[in-house]
């Protein structure tokens, strides 16, 4: 029995030493769980509009999703997303490199599971449990309040509905989500206004897709913004978006 447990322990002890991440979501797990093992991140990891670890990532190297560039780094594990860079990943897989893909968690239970999975993979189980405990502390600190409706609204009027990370955050903050997973026109929103409109903090560049949010017809509806980086990927950091929403205006 002791021998068996020793054998089982070997993969965990032999955690990969040179990890390359090609996806914004795995970038953030890698930086939080095992930054010393990160050989390169995706370029998006340094963008503060999208990444919650932009400051740490700026000190780490980055690599384009290009098979030659990745192979030159001699990684022993590749972290990737479920979509994108598929031709690059096919070449890396053909070279026999192990590839771990994120499953893009869309609620807090899935975030706990995903954090544990990557923590085990990167040999950072204790760090993973610390991140989960921190997230659960933030969620538990949200005070109960009378239920009101909140509608998440994104570019071109898309209102994420059931099964989305946005809805999970809104419910964790104690609101009923008014999003239905469809694209809504201003007239639809104005005729059935939610108690609260939740938008991404306005980008610092002009965007036709979010310009409609400045329309005067929405002026009467309370509005709260959340930083898009907290929701670009589901992770322990996402709990902060729920805390932001629950705070008194």
């Amino acid at each position: 029995m002791a021998v068996l447990s020793l054998l089982l322990a070997i993969p965990a002890m032999a955690a990969p030493l040179r990890v390359v991440s090609l996806n914004l979501c795995t970038d953030q797990f890698l930086v939080l769980l095992a930054p010393e093992r990160a050989v390169a991140l995706s370029p998006l990891a340094r963008d503060p509009a999208l990444s919650t670890v932009a400051a740490q990532a700026a000190a780490l190297p980055w690599v384009r999703p290009d098979a030659e560039a990745v192979l030159a780094l001699a990684p022993d594990l590749i972290l990737a997303g479920p979509f994108g860079a598929q031709t690059t990943l096919a070449v890396l897989a053909a070279r026999g490199l192990p590839i771990a893909r994120t499953e893009l968690p869309q609620d807090f239970a899935a975030i706990r599971a995903e954090t544990r999975r990557f923590a085990a993979l990167l040999g950072a189980v204790a760090t993973g449990e610390r991140l989960i405990a921190g997230m659960d502390r933030v969620l538990a600190s949200i005070p109960p309040h009378a239920e009101r409706s909140a509608m998440p609204i994104e570019a071109r009027g898309y209102a994420p509905g059931p099964g989305s990370l946005e809805e999970a955050v809104i419910r964790a903050a104690g609101f009923a989500s008014a999003g239905n997973g469809a694209r809504l026109s201003l007239e639809t929103i104005a005729s059935h206004p939610p108690d609260l409109l939740v938008t991404a903090a306005a980008p610092d560049y002009p965007s036709l897709a979010t310009d409609f949010l400045a329309h005067p017809v929405l002026r009467g509806i309370a509005r709260r913004t959340w930083p898009p980086a907290l929701l670009a990927c589901g992770g322990p950091w996402t709990a902060q978006a729920a805390a932001l929403l629950a705070r008194d205006p």
């Binding site: 570019a155 071109r156 009027g157 201003l186 610092d204 560049y205 897709a209």
Partner: peptide, 24 residues
């Protein structure tokens, strides 16, 4: 050359024309 990384995707809709959600 525009600062918005999604500008090319957004403009696809604009080029198809439309008057929804216009203001005074």
């Amino acid at each position: 050359a525009a600062p918005n990384p999604y500008a090319l995707a957004e403009i696809t809709f604009w080029l198809m024309g439309g008057l929804e959600d216009r203001s005074l």
